[in-house]
Simulated assay, not measured.
Amino acid sequence: MRDLILVGLIALAGSLAVAIPGALVLRRLRGRSVTAHVGGVLAVTVLAVAAGVVSTALAMFISEHDLTVLLVVIAVTGVVSLSVGLWLGRRLTAEAMWAAEARQRERTLEAGRRDLVAWVSHDLRTPLAGMRAMAEALEDGVVIDQGTVADFHRRIRVECDRMAALVEDLFELSRINAGALRLTIESLSLRDVVSDVVATVAPVAEAKRVRLVAVDSAWPVVRGSEKELSRVVANLLRNAISNTPADGTITVTGGGDGDAGWFAVTDSCGGIAEHDLPRLFEVAFRGQSARTPGETPGGGLGLAIVRGLVDAHHGEVSVANVTHGCRFTVRIPAATV
């Protein structure tokens, strides 16, 4: 029993001779990566075991051959342990980084959802209050002049159209975010898609005295869904019209570039603040604090829908400032011949 106690004390002393300095080293590793921590813990553990075994072996006066064999076994097992530990450490580091990014994305999405609810509630509550006031005035006979009555009816219809468009945008955005969007992919001529949409929104541009020009260039054939691509073009054109002052010009161009076709909408909005460019396609982002209906039509969802639909086509959308305005460019995979 005394021999066993003595061997235990010798092994303990040898292990502590390595473990205590090792603990101090590990303390200095605070703030380092998970891989560094795991590697440090394993290294200290293996060295402490080796020190305890070697101390005990030397005290027992074992042969040089047996000591060499013992050291080889400890070295091999130590290398294996460190290799496995470093591999696990890298895995843990990658998983920790992924988890942190996932939490950040979740916080960003949650903040976006809160902003969306707040902004859409404002966009619905304000016109509803106006419609209710006009309806009550008509019902109570406060307004009897035929011209005023007709104007109230027109304004109620306009507000109904605005709210219907907002609800449609919300429905489309929810389909995109939920992954419920189903595209009917086919070969499409961008010329036909753009010309149809330009003809549809031309009266809106004309009413605002904005010149809308579709340049006759080498329009490509792309792979896409006609309905969704038309929605992309329409949203970009309506956004350009709403932000271009009277007597301004909006130009639509297109072309092919390698394995992708592209079209661009260039307006005369005067440019966008550089710090707003990265956030322009965020949900409900308008780049201004004003929320007065009529100043910025729509619910701030049009460009977010554009990005979602373009992503669904495996394409890209970008925006950049140009002289006197900005340019939105959409790239869609080209149709193979």
Rank of each mutant, 00 (worst) to 15 (best):
H37S: 08
G8L: 06
A284Q: 10
R211A: 10
L301H: 12
F171V: 14
A273N: 10
K227M: 07
D3H: 03
L170W: 13
R132L: 13
E295S: 03
V215I: 08
R223A: 05
G270E: 12
E168F: 14
E95H: 09
R32Y: 10
V310K: 00
A23W: 06
W98S: 13
V69K: 14
D247Q: 03
R114T: 15
R155N: 01
A205P: 13
A51V: 14
V38A: 07
H313G: 02
A102W: 15
L183E: 02
A13N: 13
A129E: 09
V80T: 08
L24C: 13
L88G: 14
F281M: 01
A202Y: 09
H122P: 10
F285R: 12
V7D: 10
I62D: 06
D257A: 05
L67I: 08
A75V: 03
A290D: 01
A290I: 01
V210I: 09
A284E: 11
V73D: 04
N321L: 02
D247L: 02
A118F: 10
V310Q: 00
D151H: 14
L116S: 09
L42W: 07
A273R: 10
R154D: 05
H314G: 13
G39S: 12
G261N: 00
N243H: 12
R113T: 07
V204T: 02
R132A: 13
A17P: 08
T56A: 15
V69A: 04
A150T: 07
E172Q: 04
A312Q: 03
V76P: 10
L24W: 02
T200V: 15
E101N: 12
I332G: 00
N239C: 06
Q104G: 08
F61L: 08
A75Q: 06
A57S: 14
R132E: 14
R155L: 03
H37Y: 07
V76L: 11
T266Q: 06
V233P: 13
V117L: 15
G248F: 04
V193I: 11
L58T: 12
A260Y: 10
M1W: 04
L71G: 02
V330L: 03
V252M: 13
V232F: 03
S268K: 04
R331L: 11
R157I: 05
A96D: 11
V79T: 11
H122C: 09
G14T: 11
R191V: 09
M163L: 15
G224V: 06
V265M: 10
D311I: 00
V330Q: 02
A94W: 08
R291I: 03
R162W: 05
